[in-house]
Design a protein around this nucleic acid. Structure first.
Lengths: 193, 193
DNA sequence: TCCAAAATGGAATGAATGTTCCGATATCGT
DNA sequence: ACGATATCGGAACATTCATTCCATTTTGGA
């Protein structure tokens, strides 16, 4: 049997994810990756295929974690409105905590690769669908529990929340006052009253 | 006296704007620009300075037009709620009309250049400030005209609307059903009721 | 008409890009 | 202990990148 890999494949993938997340696809060079990941050029190509393949793997890895994270987050709360409040506050808090202000990898990639790379448009459509469905399901739980009045158009509210969420991820890359956005979240959540 | 320029400087700047807008900064090469603008390499450097300088000029040009466009748009309407409805609908309609799905140049650039190019963060902050102020002024007009109730936190609503606007500009780069977003706009505007 | 000056076309530059290749090294099962 | 084999380090590759340079062309005023 041959020599064993000297690095943890998933650990390095996570590093690659963070670098692509921070710098984007085009502005990240193989040299940047070699320097940052601490593995050899050849190992990178042997293990992950190439720049684009590595990016795709890193992006998938992010999407899975991100989706699961939000899903679990919504599953914990009991009050639906408080749940959304917490979700949006988390996004704000994340932006402050992350010194690199990377934002959301999905949003970043949507902007960077579309419209020129139509090959990945399906991924983004699916991502949106999954999130809107999560939001909708969560809202309907609120209706079932009599926390929300049943007569509203919750599909549209799910779309609204997801759109707002995306906007948050853009603006929190700039300098911003978290209190302003906390209050705008409150204003948004008043659609549930 | 020397030979006169054979091209219209502003006309070419507009072409450069559209290319950078579509492809972003990093993925647009000087070669792409030379091919697309139809002018000589040397003329490009003589007239605009270089890639980054040309980008900055193109970006400024966009920002001026964009800001003025929205300002004029809001100035035309009489009913405030209808004005915002029309503004958001315009963004949706623009996304459908634009076969290239370029989105918003400011949003695209925010995502692409931050956080790595902190030198331009001031521009984005100012852009947000200008837009939120426009939205706020417009909302206050509605209060003055008794179209909106005076007790709401309209600063936060201005932030909310701008955030949603940014989100729209992200999501409309993917495939989307305009009717879904029209309805989500309606849901959003219910915060004014 | 002729000259100074700006614009032009295209070659040239050097650095950076993604990718491949190869000799050396290290490891596991026998 | 040994050999098969995957990893590793680093050179090598062709291509593309932004930028510069220069000889040529074109122009307006003297």
């Amino acid at each position: 049997m041959p020599r064993v890999k000297l690095f943890n494949e998933k650990e390095i993938l996570e590093k690659a994810m963070n670098l692509f997340w921070k710098k984007g696809y085009y502005d990240t060079s193989i040299q940047d990756l070699v320097d940052d990941l601490g593995i050899n050029r050849a190992s990178l190509y042997d293990t992950y295929g190439g720049k684009r393949e590595l990016f795709d793997k890193a992006f998938s890895y992010y999407r899975i974690n991100n989706t699961e994270g939000v899903k679990k987050f919504l599953a914990t709360g009991t009050d639906v409105k408080a749940g959304f409040k917490a979700l949006f506050e988390m996004a704000i808090q994340q932006a402050i905590t992350d010194k690199e202000r990377k934002g959301c990898f999905v949003v970043n990639t949507t902007i960077e690769l579309l419209p020129n790379e139509q090959g990945c448009v399906d991924t983004f459509n699916e991502n949106r669908k999954v999130f809107e469905q999560m939001f909708y399901d969560y809202l309907m739980q609120g209706v079932k529990r009599n926390q929300l009045e049943p007569s509203k158009d919750y599909l549209s509210i799910a779309t609204l929340f997801f759109t707002f969420y995306n906007g948050l991820r853009v603006i929190t890359k700039t300098d911003f006052d978290p209190r302003d956005f906390s209050k705008s979240v409150d204003a948004l959540l008043s659609v549930l009253d």
